[in-house]
Design a protein around this nucleic acid. Structure first.
Ligand code: FES
Ligand code: FES
Lengths: 146, 146
DNA sequence: TGTATACTCTACTAAGTTAGTAGGAATAGT
DNA sequence: ACTATTCCTACTAACTTAGTAGAGTATACA
């Protein structure tokens, strides 16, 4: 698992939208400015999140983006899988991929499977509700910073 | 953590050398053939492993490569770190890197730190002695295949 | 009906990484 | 001297990452 800028922006965006859940849509422009992402590039990230079913959009005046479900139902793993793709260190962990010679007797496969499991266990159990709680806990200082 | 071909070749090479530990050096050519890697590309991998202190070399006739320490003292993590570089999903996990805005209050950092820890815990505790045992366990069928 | 506001879509690009190739120089044993 | 082998430098094609650019489409509101 390696986090690219795209994934970084996506996570920050979803957290921001989570903090605006139930309110008016947030514009791409506002989001981009708050998380300090290049506006045009960031639009592409939002498009992928939308295709992934995480957010929905309202066009025109008063439009913008909003979460398509409750922050408690969205995990960090969801975002990572949508933006960064598969999280396993090597493809044959999931399927009987023809990467190594003999899958059945490969002594390394087991290791990558464990890494995959451990990573999934972490990122699939952190919801954006959890993250919101953390943000609000430190809110007393100033506006949240992601 | 993502495994590239280089890392894949390196792990297989070190396991092969582990199985020849205490014996004559193994030539790059023989290694490459057994693990099915392009000979010239594979040489580069060996060079990196040597620089990393994992293997040493003997030049000229009867030369080749051998482990510079016991298989019980080499872990999968050692090889990964040498060949693939840092294993954390984002740079600021290790240092106070200026990637995210405010490191102290970043709610994501904690997650990547956990992923880093979990991954390290796995790959740093598998030695090539462990892997040799596995290989020898299934040896009854034929020659080992990595 | 017009217009400002915002999302949508397609295409292009520069830099970096990955997975190699190619060719020769240096060294050691017989 | 010959041969086997490591060592060293440079090049390349394909792919990924992190953007840019610009036109097109939908919606609210006056
Ligand atoms: S068969 Fe996939 S890691 Fe070896
Ligand atoms: S400060 Fe590094 S993940 Fe946010």
């Amino acid at each position: 698992m390696k986090l690219t800028y795209k994934g970084d922006y996506a996570l920050k965006a979803v957290l921001d939208l989570a903090l605006h859940y139930g309110q008016e849509p947030v514009t791409s422009h506002d989001l981009a400015k708050r998380i300090d992402a290049p506006a045009k590039f960031f639009e592409q990230v939002l498009t992928e999140l939308k295709k992934g079913g995480i957010i929905e959009s309202r066009r025109g005046n008063e439009g913008g983006y909003l979460l398509s479900k409750s922050p408690s139902k969205i995990t960090v793993g969801d975002i990572i899988r949508i933006i960064e793709g598969p999280i396993e260190p090597i493809a044959c962990v999931k399927e009987n991929y023809a990467n190594c010679t003999d899958v059945n007797r490969c002594v390394f496969r087991n290791i990558w499977q464990k890494v995959y499991q451990a990573t999934s266990d972490i990122i699939d159990h952190v919801t954006f509700e959890d993250l919101m709680a953390q943000v609000k806990g430190q809110q007393q200082i100033a506006t949240y910073s992601i």
